[in-house]
Design a protein around this nucleic acid. Structure first.
Lengths: 218, 218
DNA sequence: ACATTTTTTTAGACCAATCTAAATTTTAAC
DNA sequence: GTTAAAATTTAGATTGGTCTAAAAAAATGT
């Protein structure tokens, strides 16, 4: 049984390790956890004792198979709750993250099972991020950044990399949403910004930065 | 902002004080919180500093107006979540308490507002207990124990006093549920047990103990 | 009304999670 | 390859919630 804090560390380490593929340094963890390196060292020892990560002093940590599964279960809960909040409670997609950060720590396998069923076994959350199944399997679809898409070719927005309220509100404002059809009308050489058409209707300019945070399938 | 633990103490004190009407002794709190008197003393000092209770050493604590409101908000959340679990996620009424004990601590006024709306502003939870509104108002209906009801008069089951899984499962088994029509066919002098008819159909015997935990309106 | 029992509080300690400051190890520079 | 800089760990302290054991206050019995 993990504490609230242990779960948050585990999730952060999983994210920083690129889903478990590379090892993570103490300072990186300290930064994303808004804490100090000394605190991280203590916590890393605890998680290591529980075999969720392997820890080599001065050389960072690697997540174990068991740790990866634990992290995936937390992410599963987070994304199912976000889906619930948007689909059932009519939250906007920029309002759900903070609440889901709390809800993801509720311990009840039955609850998650029933929530999943209630939502119709969704495979992606409101930001397009895949929801791991109860065995930790993640269904991944090939997606490319809109900034790398081909000119004039219609694509479908599948997910957003940056989930900050500011960015999401901006997207809503210009009419961009998950599932929207987007075509690049022009690539501006000067600053990498794009003129795009949304749903064959609205034309807008978006920055290179924004375009890099929109993932589409062709 | 109260901690998880502080909230649980506050709720316990509210319950023990009969909704704030009488003062509560240290040992009573220790008992329901499954902790020691020394720990309670420490905690009541904390809650007292936050003006949620007033604390007189050696004479117990009284809940303040502010503390009462705080307790009611936690109870509101608990009962809304229980209602959600039963009505939307198809939990049985004996499975919801433990999960709601966790969910009641989620901090998000917007969430509760939207959950309340989603559920259609229910006034009672799956056990028939009233759900305080967002201002802390509790709608109370006059209810009497089935053991005190009049012979042969039809009544409607409004709530159960004992919410333990064992009792609730027993009730389900004999066909008793919130809203059921119940009439007492016979009162057995010897042990206070009753023969009752449920929904004008099924006849069963229930103990005096069980009858005291069933609240009905005539 | 005094002694005994019960209840409550205080004192001192522990664990988890955190911090600062100091020490250590690794890395990078030249 | 030595030294300076950066990263990490250790040591020691703090806070919240808990405990045990001892002290203090209140209630009880005769």
């Amino acid at each position: 049984m993990l504490s609230f804090t242990e779960e948050n560390y585990l999730k952060a380490i999983y994210r920083l390790s690129d889903s478990g593929s590379k090892s993570v340094l103490t300072n990186e963890i300290a930064e994303v956890m808004n804490t100090k390196a000394a605190s991280v060292t203590d916590m890393v020892k605890k998680l290591s004792n529980k075999d969720l990560i392997s820890y080599e002093p001065y050389y960072g940590v690697k997540i174990t198979r068991q740790g990866k599964l634990g992290a995936l279960m937390i992410i599963r809960k987070h994304r199912l709750w976000e889906t619930f909040l948007v689909e059932k409670l009519q939250f906007n997609w920029d309002e759900v993250h903070e609440v889901a950060e709390q809800l993801e720590h509720i311990q009840s396998p039955l609850l998650i099972e029933k929530l999943d069923e209630f939502l119709g076994y969704p495979t992606a959350d409101p930001h397009g991020h895949p929801i791991p199944d109860k065995n930790g399997k993640v269904q991944s679809v090939k997606q490319i950044a809109l900034s790398d898409a081909i000119l004039n070719k219609k694509s479908t927005l599948k997910s957003v990399t940056d989930g900050s309220p500011a960015f999401l509100q901006y997207l809503s404002k210009i009419g961009v949403y998950i599932g929207a059809t987007i075509a690049i009308l022009e690539k501006i050489e000067f600053d990498g910004s794009l003129e795009i058409r949304i749903d064959n209707k609205r034309k807008v300019f978006i920055s290179r930065d924004a375009a890099q945070n929109l993932l589409v399938t062709e």
